[in-house]
Deep mutational scan, measured.
Amino acid sequence: AIERGSKVKILRKESYWYGDVGTVASIDKSGIIYPVIVRFNKVNYNGFSGSAGGLNTNNFAEHELEVV
């Protein structure tokens, strides 16, 4: 089962992080479509409006993740 702290591989082909491994930061139990927040070591794009980097978290559905 996917739980907080799990290392997961991203299976969503259109994702910037496809094939990468991230760490589960949290799981939303409220029934939303993409409840699993995954944190990565790298950012997906340069930040804007003065922020240092881009996003390094993204929401995924459990079926888009594979525990490694």
Rank of each mutant, 00 (worst) to 15 (best):
Val67Trp: 06
Ala1Met: 12
Tyr18Trp: 04
Tyr16His: 05
Leu55Val: 14
Gly47Thr: 07
Ser30Gly: 09
Arg4Gln: 11
Asn46Met: 10
Gly19Asn: 09
Arg12Asn: 04
Pro35Thr: 12
Ser49Thr: 12
Lys42Leu: 07
Trp17Asn: 03
Asp28Cys: 12
Lys29Gln: 09
Ile10Gly: 01
Asn58Gln: 15
Pro35Trp: 15
Asp20Cys: 15
Ile33His: 10
Arg4Thr: 11
Ser51Asn: 11
Asn41Asp: 10
Asn56Cys: 15
Val68Pro: 02
Ala1Ile: 11
Gly19Phe: 07
Ile32Trp: 09
Asn56Arg: 10
Leu65Gln: 02
Arg39Gln: 10
Asn46Asp: 15
Asn46Gly: 09
Gly19Thr: 04
Asn56Ser: 09
Gly50His: 09
Glu64Phe: 04
Asp28Tyr: 06
Tyr18Asp: 00
Gly31Ala: 11
Ile2Gly: 02
Phe60Thr: 00
Gly5Asn: 04
Gly5Tyr: 05
Glu3Ile: 12
Val43His: 12
Ser15Leu: 02
Trp17Thr: 00
Leu11Ala: 02
Asn56Leu: 08
Ser6Ala: 13
Ala25Glu: 14
Asp28Ser: 09
Ile32Pro: 08
Tyr16Ala: 05
Gly5Met: 03
Gly5Ile: 03
Asp28Leu: 11
Asp20Pro: 02
Gly54Trp: 10
Ala61Ser: 06
Ile37Cys: 15
Gly5Pro: 02
Tyr16Val: 07
Val21Asn: 02
Lys29His: 11
Ala1Asp: 07
Val43Met: 10
Val24Ala: 01
Gly5Asp: 04
Ile32Gly: 12
Glu66His: 05
Gly50Lys: 04
Lys7His: 12
Ile27Val: 08
Arg12Glu: 01
Ser6Gly: 04
Thr23His: 05
Ser15Gly: 02
Lys7Cys: 15
Glu3Lys: 13
Lys29Glu: 10
Gly50Pro: 11
Leu11Tyr: 03
Glu66Ile: 08
Asp20Tyr: 13
Val43Cys: 15
Glu14Thr: 12
Gly53Asp: 13
Gly19Leu: 13
Tyr16Asp: 05
His63Tyr: 11
Lys9Arg: 14
Asn41Pro: 07
Arg12Trp: 03
Leu65Phe: 03
Gly22Cys: 07
Val68Met: 10
Arg12Ser: 03
Ala52Trp: 10
Asn46Gln: 12
Thr57Arg: 06
Gly54Asn: 06
Asn41Ile: 10
Asn41Arg: 12
Thr23Val: 12
Phe60Gly: 00
Glu62Phe: 15
Val36Lys: 00
Ile10Lys: 01
Gly54Asp: 08
Leu55Ala: 10
Ser30Ile: 06
Ala61Gln: 06
Thr23Cys: 14
Ala61Glu: 05
Arg39Thr: 11
Ile37Tyr: 09
Ile37His: 07
Val43Trp: 14
Val38Leu: 01
Ile27Trp: 05
Asn56Lys: 06
Glu62Thr: 11
Ser26Phe: 13
Ser30Cys: 09
Gly50Trp: 06
Leu65Val: 05
Leu65Asp: 02
Phe40Pro: 00
Gly50Tyr: 07
Ser26Pro: 00
Ile10Trp: 02
Lys9Leu: 10
Ala52Val: 11
Glu66Thr: 06
Val21Pro: 00
Arg12Met: 04
Val68Thr: 05
Asn56Trp: 12
Tyr18Lys: 01
Ile27His: 03
Lys9Ile: 09
Lys9Thr: 04
Val24Tyr: 01
Leu65Asn: 01
Ser30Glu: 07
Lys42Trp: 09
Ser51Trp: 07
Arg4Ile: 14
Thr57Phe: 13
Val68Asp: 03
Gly22Ser: 03
Gly47Leu: 04
Asp20Gln: 08
Leu55Thr: 14
Arg39Asp: 04
Glu62Trp: 14
Asn44Lys: 14
His63Glu: 10
Leu65Glu: 00
Leu11Lys: 04
Val24Gly: 00
Val24Met: 01
Phe40Tyr: 02
Glu64Cys: 05
Leu11Met: 06
Lys7Phe: 12
Gly54Tyr: 09
Val38Thr: 00
Thr23Trp: 09
Ser26Ile: 06
Glu62His: 10
Lys29Leu: 11
Lys29Asn: 11
Tyr34Leu: 09
Asn44Trp: 15
Val68Glu: 04
Arg39Leu: 10
His63Cys: 14
Ser49Arg: 04
Val38Ser: 00
Glu3Cys: 15
Ile37Met: 14
Glu64Gln: 02
Leu55Pro: 07
Gly54Pro: 09
Tyr45Trp: 08
Glu14His: 07
Gly22His: 02
Ile2Ser: 02
His63Pro: 04
Ala25His: 09
Ser30Tyr: 06
Glu14Leu: 08
Val36Pro: 00
Asp28His: 04
Val8Pro: 01
Ala61Cys: 08
Phe40Lys: 00
Asp28Ile: 08
Glu64Arg: 02
Asn44Cys: 15
Gly53Arg: 04
Tyr16Leu: 06
Ser49Leu: 11
Ser6Cys: 14
Asn58Pro: 03
Val67Asp: 03
Ile37Ser: 09
Leu11Gly: 02
Val21Thr: 08
Glu3Asp: 07
Asn44Ser: 11
Val36Gln: 00
Pro35Cys: 14
Lys13Asn: 05
Ser51Met: 11
Asn59Phe: 08
Val68Cys: 10
Gly53Ser: 10
Ser26Gln: 09
Val24Pro: 00
Asn44Arg: 10
Lys9Tyr: 04
Ser49Tyr: 13
Asp28Val: 06
Leu11Arg: 04
Gly22Val: 05
Lys13Phe: 12
Asn59Gly: 10
Val43Ser: 08
Ile10Phe: 03
Asn46His: 12
Gly50Val: 06
Val43Ala: 07
Trp17Phe: 06
Ala25Phe: 10
Thr57Gly: 07
Ser49Gly: 11
Phe60Ser: 00
Gly19Tyr: 04
Ile33Cys: 14
Tyr18Ala: 03
Ile32Asp: 11
Trp17His: 05
Tyr16Gln: 06
Val8Asp: 00
Arg4Trp: 08
Tyr18Ile: 03
Phe48Gln: 14
Thr23Ala: 04
Asn58Ile: 09
Ile33Ser: 13
Ser15Ala: 03
Asp20His: 12
Arg4Phe: 09
Pro35Val: 15
Leu55Tyr: 12
Glu66Cys: 09
Ser6Gln: 10
Ala61His: 04
Asn59Glu: 07
Val24Trp: 04
Asp20Met: 13
Gly19Glu: 05
Ile2Pro: 04
Arg39Tyr: 11
Leu55Glu: 13
Gly54Cys: 15
Ser51Val: 11
Tyr18His: 04
Thr57Trp: 15
Ser15Tyr: 04
Thr57Ser: 09
Leu65Ala: 00
His63Thr: 08
Gly22Ile: 08
Thr57Tyr: 14
Val36Tyr: 15
Val36Arg: 00
Val43Asp: 13
Glu62Lys: 08
Ala25Trp: 13
Thr57Pro: 04
Val36Gly: 00
Phe60Pro: 01
Leu55Met: 12
Ala1Trp: 11
Lys7Gln: 12
Asn56Tyr: 13
Arg12Tyr: 02
Val43Tyr: 15
Arg4Val: 14
Phe60Tyr: 06
Ser26Arg: 11
Asn41Phe: 11
Val8Phe: 02
Ile33Gly: 12
Asn59Met: 09
Val43Thr: 11
Phe60Asp: 01
Val43Gly: 08
Tyr16Cys: 09
Thr57Asn: 06
Gly47His: 07
Asp28Trp: 05
Val21Gly: 02
Arg12Pro: 01
Lys29Arg: 12
Gly19Gln: 08
Asn41Ser: 13
Tyr45Ser: 15
Ser6Phe: 13
Asn44Val: 10
Pro35Asp: 09
Tyr18Gly: 00
Asn56Thr: 12
Asn59His: 09
Glu64Leu: 02
Ile10Val: 12
